[in-house]
Design a protein around this nucleic acid. Sequence first.
DNA 1: TTTATAATTCGACATATTTCGAATTATAGG
DNA 2: CCTATAATTCGAAATATGTCGAATTATAAA
Lengths: 112, 112
Amino acid sequence: MSNYKTINLERYSIMFKALSNPHRLQIFNLLTGCCEPGTVCSTNEAISCCVGELDQQLDIASSTLSHHLKELNRAGLLNMKREGKQIFCSINPSTLIELGDLFSAESTIKPN
Amino acid sequence: MSNYKTINLERYSIMFKALSNPHRLQIFNLLTGCCEPGTVCSTNEAISCCVGELDQQLDIASSTLSHHLKELNRAGLLNMKREGKQIFCSINPSTLIELGDLFSAESTIKPN
DNA sequence: TTTATAATTCGACATATTTCGAATTATAGG
DNA sequence: CCTATAATTCGAAATATGTCGAATTATAAA
C-alpha cells in the first residue's frame, strides 16, 4: 500500500501558469512576502490589500491588473472580497500549502 | 535582523512558466513522481530517462518534446547528459528544493 | 438624483507559445 | 565510408497571452 499523495496535473498547471507571469508573481509576493520575520505567512490570516493599493505598486494599467487578479483567482490562489467600493485581495492559504506539498517528498501527480 | 530567505522573482517566473505547460508538467512528474514509497525523490539521485523513453509516454512529436526539454533545462529544472546516442534527463534536485522553500514559511521574493 | 470613486469588461493589437514535419547533427556499428 | 538510430534545429501556422484605453458597472456620499 502506497502512501503517495495524489494530486491533479491539470489543476497544477493552471496554478503554475498563474504564477508564471512576472506581474502576477509580484502580486503573489506582495500578498505573501511581507509577513513579520518568524511568522508563517501560509498559515496566518493572509495579508489583505485592496486592488487600488496593488495598482499603486505595479506600473500597469488598472484593467491589466484586473485581468491578472482574475487569473490568480481562477487558479485558486487568490481570494477576493468586496467591502464597500473596494475589493480586498488575499492569498488562499490552503492552496499555498498544497503547492508546498507538491515539492516535498512522496508526491505524485495524477494524470487528468 | 531578518531571517527571511531572499529569492529572485524573475528566476522563479521562468521556473513556473516551465511547469505551466501540461506536457512539461507531465515530464516533470514522470521524472519525480515514480520514486518508491517512503523515499524522498527530491534528494535522492534523480530518476533518469532517455529522451526516447519520454517520447513513448507523451503523444507529441519528438521535435516538440525536444523543445519542452530545452525549456525545462533553461529553467534549471532538468539536467541532460549524453551517453552514446542517447541523452538522459533527470530533475535537478537542488531546484526542486528551492521551489519547496518558496512555499514554506519566511520566504520573500527579491524584485529583480 | 447626481456625482465621485473603485474596479471590471470589452475590443483591438502586438507578441509569445505550441505544435508539426522536414532537414540536420551526433554517435555507433558494420 | 556508409547506414541506422537518437535527438535537435528550423520554418511555418494556429492559438494563447499581455497590454492598453474607452466604456461600463457597483457602491457610497452629497
